[in-house]
Amino acid sequence: MTAYLLKRLAIAIATLVLASMVVFAVLEILPGDPARLMLGMNASADQVELLRNQMGLNAPLALRYLHWAGGLLSLDFGRSYTYSVPVIDLVRERLAVSLPLALIALALSTIIAIPVGLFSASRRGRAGDTISMGAAQLGVAVPNFWFALMLIYVFAVWLRLVPAGGFPGWSAGVWPALKSLLLPAVALALPQAAILARVTRSALIEVLNEDYIRTARAKGLPYRAVLWRHALRNAMIPVLTILGLQFAFLLAGTIIIENVFYLPGLGRLVFQAITQRDLIVVESVVMLLVAAVIAVNLLVDLSYAVVDPRLRSRQ
């Protein structure tokens, strides 16, 4: 168990370090001088040079990387060129929107997908299976931002049940804030739920063909009991894998969805930063999202060990 955990942890850390190098390298090869960008076109060469020294831009590459990476570790991402505030403050503020959004979407997609997958697998080939898998097939094909537009049209423009966009802030109360996250979460969740339902179904069907399912049936367990007690847990591994991957997709998806709904989240922040060429913000947010993806994948690896005793047995 410990060997497995340590190996996974080491891999995650190594990936994170490599990823940070990639991001740093991208920062390095970017055209334009950040000091010049900050001071504007009218600044003199001396002023720029002074700021470059202050910012540590003249230090050797390796040292600059260490300085930058050390800053990340102590949550010092630097200052935004355009907002002139520490990036971490911006990120913290925006995370309060993006994180709940991604989590609600993930929960929603799981809650919908797993029962549908179970239902479909247990009625394989029957009408219920055909209908739900047909719907899932369609769901996989729908781009989430277009689905979002359609939702806005129906629920905000036509039925006027929810706001079409914007975010009142958590200070306006939990319910109004949640209400404005509802449509975005649904738009994010449904296409992902379709994928997850398909994976759940096929994983279950594969497991149901295993020999040990027959052993369980030969014990006298009815089909339903076999499905719940024996098949589901074994089918969890591919489902968990997809859940991990989906988190990455959801994070990326928030970038688009936040733009559709004008939500002041990380996605909108990074998008605006690109248009304003506020590169330090772009790098920081990318780094943060990459770290989140790596952390979630680590979590998925660890949950494999919980589900599958074969991974645990290395005592």
């Binding site: 040990y212 027959r214 074994n234 599958d308 005793p309």
Partner: peptide, 9 residues
């Protein structure tokens, strides 16, 4: 080898 459920004792 395959007749037992791998995730149950």
């Amino acid at each position: 080898m395959t007749a037992l459920n791998p995730v149950k004792t």
